[in-house]
Simulated scan of single mutants.
Amino acid sequence: MEEVVDGVAKMKIVDPSKKNRIQVSNTKKPLFFYVNLAKRYMQQHNEVELSALGMAIATVVTVAEILKNNGLAVEKKITTSTVDMKDDTRGRPIQKAKIEILLGKTANFDELMAAAAEERDAADGEDQS
């Protein structure tokens, strides 16, 4: 038990204020995994920051647009930059595009989420019969 406590004490949290950040990959998870995760983060923190590099940028933009088009989120801030990375195949540094999109809850976010939950519950009730 003592080793676990020591291990936790030595852990470095990169940025403890970024509990609401989702780093999106375009290969690891399906699109709606990120949409649903973003909804959960907005419920908990009132806003969510979507972040991606390179080819995953299109996924982040799509997730943000789905949330906005469904009336759940508003854009608060979009930041673009480049990040220096090491190219694994050639061993030389390369630059990758990076995007960060900060989304906040809309005024009727909670209503929409409650309505969606009721619809799910009603559908589940129909499945049971």
Score class of each variant (00 low, 15 high):
Leu53His: 02
Leu53Phe: 03
Leu53Gln: 07
Gly54Gln: 01
Gly54Thr: 01
Gly54Leu: 05
Met55Thr: 15
Ala56Lys: 01
Ala56Trp: 06
Ala56Tyr: 02
Ile57Arg: 02
Ile57Asn: 02
Ile57Trp: 01
Ile57Val: 03
Ala58Thr: 13
Thr59His: 10
Thr59Asp: 07
Thr59Tyr: 05
Val60Asn: 00
Val61Thr: 12
Thr62His: 09
Thr62Cys: 12
Val63Cys: 02
Ala64Asp: 14
Ala64Val: 09
Glu65Trp: 12
Glu65Arg: 14
Glu65Cys: 10
Ile66Ser: 12
Ile66Thr: 11
Ile66Val: 11
Ile66Ala: 10
Leu67Phe: 08
Leu67Lys: 06
Lys68Thr: 10
Lys68Tyr: 11
Asn69Thr: 15
Asn70Leu: 12
Gly71Ala: 10
Gly71Trp: 02
Leu72Asp: 02
Leu72Phe: 10
Leu72Trp: 04
Leu72Gly: 00
Ala73Trp: 01
Ala73Ser: 08
Val74His: 03
Val74Ser: 06
Val74Ala: 06
Val74Arg: 05
Glu75Val: 01
Glu75Tyr: 04
Glu75Met: 10
Lys76Arg: 10
Lys76Asn: 07
Lys76Asp: 05
Lys77Arg: 10
Lys77Thr: 06
Ile78Glu: 07
Thr79Met: 10
Thr79His: 08
Thr80Pro: 02
Thr80Cys: 02
Val83Gln: 07
Asp84Cys: 15
Asp84Ala: 14
Asp84Glu: 14
Asp84Tyr: 13
Asp84Thr: 15
Lys86Pro: 06
Lys86Asn: 06
Asp88Val: 11
Thr89Cys: 09
Thr89Arg: 13
Arg90Tyr: 14
Gly91Arg: 01
Gly91Gln: 04
Gly91Trp: 02
Gly91Ile: 05
Gly91Thr: 01
Gly91Phe: 03
Arg92Gly: 14
Arg92Val: 15
Arg92Leu: 13
Pro93Ile: 09
Pro93Asn: 08
Gln95Pro: 12
Ala97Tyr: 13
Ala97Ile: 08
Lys98Met: 11
Ile99Trp: 05
Ile99Gly: 06
Glu100Thr: 14
Glu100His: 12
Glu100Gln: 15
Ile101Ser: 06
Ile101Lys: 04
Leu102Glu: 07
Leu102Asp: 10
Leu103Val: 06
Leu103Ile: 05
Leu103Glu: 00
Gly104Asn: 04
Lys105Met: 00
Lys105Tyr: 02
Lys105Asp: 00
Lys105His: 06
Thr106His: 03
Ala107Pro: 05
Asn108Ser: 15
Asn108Tyr: 07
Asn108Asp: 15
